[in-house]
Structure formats: C-alpha cells, structure tokens
Nucleic acid binder design. Structure first.
Lengths: 196, 196
DNA sequence: GTCTATACGAAGATAGAC
DNA sequence: GTCTATCTTCGTATAGAC
C-alpha cells in the first residue's frame, strides 16, 4: 500500500500548514473549480497563516494548484495498490469506489480536481500536469487489467473508457445532484469488465 | 429535423448581434470555461456592440450563459434528429461524431460548454440548467435506442454511459491534446452498442 | 515563517446620454 | 439599441517589517 503523501519539492521542507493548504486546495478545486478557488478560500479552509503563501508557493497559484492536482492523482493511484493482482472486476470496482465516495461524502458537491483544472486552465503547464495524471490513471488501470489476465489492447480500451466514463459520470451526477447517472454508468462499466 | 435556434425570451426580439453573442459565448465557454469567459471576450469574439449587453441580457452574465448552454444542448439534440429510426449503432456513432468534430475543428482546444459551466457554477440555477441538458441528451438517446429495438433498461444504461464516457473523453483528449483517448473510448462505446 | 499594507488589474454591474 | 463613464468588488502579487 503506497503512502499517500505530497511530494515535497527539492529544498522545501513540507510544514504542516503547507500540507494543509495543498489538501484544502484539492478539495476546493474539486468543488468550486479553478477560478472559483482563491488563495483566501484556501487559507480560510485550511486555517493556514496568511503571510506564508508565497513563502511556500513561490510560483504563486499555479504552484499550489499543481500540487493539489498531484495529490488528487496519487490518491486515486494509491487506492489501486490494494487490488494489485486481483481480477479485473475488482480493479474497476475499486476505481469506481473512489469517485462514488467523493460524491457521497461531499453530498454531490465535489467532483474531480484534475478535470476542473483542465476545463479552466489558461497555461499549457497546468494542462500538461492534468494530462499526465489522466494518463497515469489510464496506464495504471491497463497494467492491472493485463496482470489480471486481459490482453493488452482490450485492457487499454477498457482502462480508457473506465476513466472517461467515471469522470463524465461524476460531473453529470453533480449537475443533477443525483447519484443515478453515476450508478447507471458504474453498472455498465462493471458489466464490461471481465470477472476473472 | 429540428431547427437549431436560440429560444427568444418573451418580449425580447432576437436581433442579429444578440444571436452572435450567444453563439460566441457557447464557443468561449467550451474553450476557456465559465470564469475564463468575460463579457469583453464575448463582445470581441462576436463583434457585437459594447453598449447592448444588459439590454439583451438583463440578468447579466448568467442570462447569457444559460442561453449559450441551451444552444449547445439543442445542437447535440438536433443532430440526432437525422438518425431517428436507425439502428442503435448509428445513434451512438452520430453522437460521437458531434464531439469528435468539436475536438477536431478546435484543434483539441474546445470541449463541452455544459460541462465547463457545471464544474464552475456558483448558482443552483446554472446547475439546474446544466442538469436538464445532460438529462435531455440521456433521455433522447435512450428513446432512440428503444426505437431501434433495445429493451428499456439496457437502453437507459447504454445512454448513460455514452453521454458520460463521451464527456469524459472530450476532457481527457483536450488535456492530452491528443485524439487517442477519445478514439479508444469511441471504439469501446461502439462495441457496446447493438448493431441492429 | 509569518505579518500587514498596498499596488495593480480585471470583471460585473449600473447610470444616464444619444 | 447602443454609447461612455464609473462604481464596486475581488483576486493576484509584491514589499518590507517582525
């Protein structure tokens, strides 16, 4: 089981308030979007001290956002470590669980921070980071499916649709404030996944 | 074939510049997101006169955004009118085509305006509008699948995953600036759809 | 590491003339 | 229907003290 931690940058000691800021940013991005998440919101939500923003994130908001996305990215990857070597159906189930929990715990108010950044990003840099995370999820799922006995091509296609459909379903369930769209998609994705 | 037009509000005559503003807003929302789309951007893009914003949209930005979303919603619905009565595979193909075209014509820069608004909406009103559009797509697809010979429940599940996976794939292809994720998902969705 | 104060720019909205 | 001017709010970022 991979430890889910924020990767500290070289030379920067990760303090507690810094860690909380990244954590809060991830939640707020997933809930209010990129431009809806101001530094002031992150400070309020995290309880972090006002004066330390540019100390911890010299590159400004983009620095913070990149780390928050990375955190979200590693969280989803980390959860998959628990099902290494298990059949494909368990892999899909586990990935779906992550996002079902996000929806339920937030009362259908939060979604995916990476997706939120993608649709509002104005810099290629942020887009690159988002792309890397989506790709990492897809590649990781495909690998696990292959380990679970699937051939490479079907595994890659399944991984692609699992990530895409889940992301889309989260957005739509948020919009409708109902778990129904997500549940329908989950059912179909599981039906698509080999049981052994 | 449904005419794809902006529904004028009662008492407001839809002028040409007004129409262009809605059109431009739809494109910009899909490209830069909700907060990334300012009135000034819409004016510049549409060439509409500066002084007429609050004349045409008394409710301000939300008014304009709602109409832009509605336009995007009806566009996708309108395209489906051409495949009424055809087998499910043609329905899925057609829906995918809409979004493939959005990606290709924008050089992977534009996505879905409704999704963009959903992840950044701060009012329940905008969220409701977005939800209604997602739901309309889903219901319409399911109806067409049923007309094409599918049973009600499988048709509803298929419709749900087609909309969700397509929306997700558009976001991910944008992030990666590659059509590959979308192509993989399209392939899988077509494999999922009955051919007759 | 953390603080306050402030510069700077952007955006939504309103008022009133033409 | 369209124009300009302006008010107001807000957010990022910087400077410099503690």
């Amino acid at each position: 089981m991979t430890l889910v931690i924020v990767k500290p940058r070289k030379g920067i000691v990760p303090t507690e308030s810094r860690r909380r800021m990244v954590e809060s940013a991830a939640i707020l991005l997933a809930t209010r979007g990129l431009d809806g998440t101001a530094f002031s919101d992150v400070l309020e939500h995290s309880g972090a001290p006002r004066g330390s923003i540019y100390h911890h994130f010299p590159g400004g908001k983009d620095d913070l956002v990149e780390e928050a996305m990375a955190l979200a990215g590693e969280r989803a990857l980390g959860v998959l470590d628990a099902v290494v070597g298990q059949p494909p159906i368990d892999i899909t189930q586990r990935f779906l669980d992550v996002w079902r929990q996000v929806l339920i715990r937030s009362e259908l108010r939060a979604g995916c921070a990476v997706l939120a950044v993608t649709v509002a990003a104005d810099s290629t840099d942020l887009l690159d980071r988002a792309a890397a995370i989506f790709r990492a999820w897809r590649v990781r799922l495909a690998d696990l499916y292959i380990q679970g006995g699937m051939a490479a091509d079907p595994a890659r296609r399944l991984a692609a649709i699992v990530v895409s459909a889940t992301e889309g379903a989260v957005v739509i369930s948020r919009a409708e404030r109902s778990l129904e769209p997500f549940a329908l998609v989950a059912e179909e994705l599981l039906a698509l996944t080999p049981t052994a």
